[in-house]
Design a protein around this nucleic acid. Sequence first.
DNA 1: CATGAATGAGGATTCATTCAT
DNA 2: CATGAATGAATCCTCATTCAT
Lengths: 201, 201, 201, 201
Amino acid sequence: MSAVSRTSDDGAVEHRRMRADARGNADALVEAATTVFAEAGVAAPVRTIADRAGVGVGTLYRHFPLRSDLISAVFRRELDACVDAAEEMEAAMPPGEALDAWIMRFTGFVATKQGLAAALHSGDTAYEPLAAAFATRLVPTLERLLSAAIASGDISRRVDAAEFLAAVANLCHGGGPSSRASGREARMVRLLLAGLRSPAD
Amino acid sequence: MSAVSRTSDDGAVEHRRMRADARGNADALVEAATTVFAEAGVAAPVRTIADRAGVGVGTLYRHFPLRSDLISAVFRRELDACVDAAEEMEAAMPPGEALDAWIMRFTGFVATKQGLAAALHSGDTAYEPLAAAFATRLVPTLERLLSAAIASGDISRRVDAAEFLAAVANLCHGGGPSSRASGREARMVRLLLAGLRSPAD
Amino acid sequence: MSAVSRTSDDGAVEHRRMRADARGNADALVEAATTVFAEAGVAAPVRTIADRAGVGVGTLYRHFPLRSDLISAVFRRELDACVDAAEEMEAAMPPGEALDAWIMRFTGFVATKQGLAAALHSGDTAYEPLAAAFATRLVPTLERLLSAAIASGDISRRVDAAEFLAAVANLCHGGGPSSRASGREARMVRLLLAGLRSPAD
Amino acid sequence: MSAVSRTSDDGAVEHRRMRADARGNADALVEAATTVFAEAGVAAPVRTIADRAGVGVGTLYRHFPLRSDLISAVFRRELDACVDAAEEMEAAMPPGEALDAWIMRFTGFVATKQGLAAALHSGDTAYEPLAAAFATRLVPTLERLLSAAIASGDISRRVDAAEFLAAVANLCHGGGPSSRASGREARMVRLLLAGLRSPAD
DNA sequence: CATGAATGAGGATTCATTCAT
DNA sequence: CATGAATGAATCCTCATTCAT
């Protein structure tokens, strides 16, 4: 690329190109996969991702031999941010509110992971490391939030954190590629949260 | 209006007035499809279903020209039973209990319909008759149950019946082919039902 | 059918049914095939023809075991009329005009025989009887017309009648299913006829 | 303007800037298609062509995503040569002879394009670029030849160039796969040319 | 005799994955 | 290291033809 920044008719592409140079192909691929997965699900054709990242499919396979490797990479980038957000919330609000806030935050995280739940439950052993990341990072976070809310009396039911997390994820996309209607999903998640408040049966 | 003609509101071929052997094949196909769909989702290869039914692919296409026709057939076989069950429950127990009981009944119905939600939300117009059946049979049933439970004071929140139904369906399989763990799902559905009891926010 | 003629919303179908009763299935099939061939070419699916004739495919195969049998039948029905027309023309006008008139008549005959030329040249031995009918009925007719026109001095070139007939047929449809633009075709046929008038090279 | 870039006015993949092996395959495919089309028409199975070129079907689809792309490629290879030949003929002989010579040259070109006319008239939009090439390259060439021959008095009738070209093409194969008998066809084309000499009616 | 159900070969197309350049 | 060309298995769907009812 020469001195002039070659004003592009597609800022996104240009941006990708620039950062690809700076950050390397692996990052460009994760970036591309994030977008593609959100649009077409984790079963999207590899070629689509490679094209979007501006690299050849060979390069994709070099960095991520298994599809699940790429999914994991996409996943983890946001996982940390989501986990970190919990601490701020715990510090800033009472347990019950923190719980609600974080679940809605998690909702936003999972909303762009079309087909993730399906992959996780596919039984394919390739996805086990992914499930493990789920279990070791997110589940403990939620457990902490739930315990605090129970201790403070904000919620009255005990639920399994992993189960609850999976339920929220499922509510956010029944498997369909382009689940719009985030309002619908949010309402049902809130109903689930309300369930935690109602006396146990 | 349980056993009305229901001849060809979907693409499937008329079932009455069919030669005995033909009807036998059609039934075998629905049977096979039910199993295959439960195991591998509604996107399973046609050939798999035909083989399992012991017929050629041509026969499958004769009876069910569109994949959605076969799905509809599988679907409807149990849809009626599920709808009918509501009446008995309404007669036998108070509104709140009837609501809970029917939702759990619906859970059992939907549990074996892997990928159905995904198909419904795929945007593919072929699935519209299926979505319509959902809307015209199940949604009104749930609306009736919800209204009664509100009137009796058993539940305190109003929710959209279609939305609630979709949520329950999603909770029962995140899209993954072989969702085991029906206990997990039932617990989360009960939590959603509990949410209906908690005071609206 | 009862006394009332059951006024149909589709006169053509009704008509076909009536005549099918009266004339037998074979005739109904030839009738149907004529229409279908004109619309979709001689390679149209058998099922289409059987449906249009209101009979099962089995019946079609009983009467016309080979596709070429059906084509022949369709063909011959009009072949005779075309041949007969020549005699009238010969009697009513001078040789040159009669030749032109008959060729244009033949043009009308061949215009509805989409794909016939292709079938004839396909090399498939099944079409030999068809080619034979062509040779024994149409070719002699044209030979007579050509000879008379040469004798009278109306045309100056000798051409092979079979060749000329094939050429006219080809001009009338290049193989495409729905050759419209009959004007275009007629103009080119007339040019060919004009060629007969120009002095031999 | 003979060897202009002509990069992607059809769907085929760019030919320059291609890896040596890839270009080799593309050429082999065009070569194979030329033969197969001549033998079995442009509707021949894709597999046949791929096999003959010694490549997998995937390779064929990579280079020529649409069947019409392959046809175009086959077509254009000879189109230019045919158009170029006109200039030489115009320079070397009187208008009337040049016209005849070029038409016979065109005859040779079209003789191996079995089913081309049918494809062109099929109404399938995929063939539009092909028809366009026909219209923008061949038709103007013939128009020039016809005008010159009229100006010199060599021919006496005006005809539409596109129409005449189509007629010649049709005469060269009525759609049948293996039109032998090039003598027959040449004779009829000459008759059409003779028609141009006869006084208009 | 008529029917139309069943069969399955045939042909198109996509996409994950490998490997020569 | 990166590339993207090549491969071919997998899947879809159509239709000619046979044969039980």
